[in-house]
Simulated scan of single mutants.
Amino acid sequence: MFALRCFTVWRTVLRSSLRSTAAGGSVISSVTLLIGSAFAGVYRLWAMFCMPGLRVPFRLKVPFLPSTKEQTLNVIKLLEGRKGHLADLGSGDGRLAFAAPSMGFQCTGFEINSMLLACSRSKAWWRGVPHTDIHFVKQDFWKASFICINVAVFLAPAVMGVLEEKLLKKLPEDARVIVCRFPFPHWPHSCTAGSGLNQVWAYDVHTAREPSRTSSHQSYFPSISSMI
């Protein structure tokens, strides 16, 4: 939304500049060109830090939204008692990934934005975090074939339906998915923590697969009324 507004303003300013230049208004055209260049610079800077790469389809592009401290604590709360590996899909600047080792997790952060990836890797190096505890990879998680029993997600509502289909096919039966702020549209959640912008939901894959199993079982065995 922010990018669209910047682009709209920049286009309007550019058109005004062209009209002013055609009318011979050199001072006005210089000012409008300066403003237009400023908006274009802001847009490019925002896109550089907050948007994924060009290889990601437009319908799956999600801008970077930093998680709050309370939100991160809620994610950790819903992962209590679980161990193993944690996959952070769209890890951003690595806020959740850096909290994972305190709970005994080994974390892999998937991030395709080069600037955010460099930021998270630099912080890991500066803090002296072992590579075995946190590993940031430049990879499009939409195409990645990962098998993990713990997954954390903070994406936009428009892609949650596509993501739940992918995870339902890829994740093992005992996997748990933690979703921040925007819940899955179809999966039944097991528990939740927080409220408002800091609310997170926990989904267990075996629970999410039960409705599909029930429907396939019912379709295989016809009802008694249909047989009479």
Rank of each mutant, 00 (worst) to 15 (best):
M1N: 12
R5P: 00
R15H: 02
A22M: 07
V31F: 03
L34C: 13
V42W: 02
Y43E: 06
R44Q: 13
M48I: 06
R55Y: 01
R59F: 01
L60Y: 09
S67H: 00
T72D: 09
T72H: 03
K77G: 08
E80Y: 10
L86R: 12
A87H: 02
A87T: 02
L89E: 00
A97W: 13
A97N: 10
M103C: 15
M103H: 12
F110H: 05
N113F: 03
S114C: 15
C119V: 01
S120V: 02
K123R: 14
A124V: 07
W126H: 08
D133L: 07
I134Q: 03
I134D: 07
H135Q: 04
F136H: 06
F141K: 08
W142F: 11
N150R: 00
V153S: 09
F154D: 09
F154W: 12
L155W: 11
E164K: 03
L167N: 09
P172N: 01
R176K: 10
F182M: 15
F182E: 07
P183R: 03
F184C: 13
H186G: 04
H186R: 05
T192I: 08
G194A: 02
G196Q: 09
N198A: 06
N198L: 02
V200L: 04
D204V: 08
T207C: 13
R209A: 04
R209D: 09
P211L: 01
Q218P: 02
S219T: 04
S225Y: 05
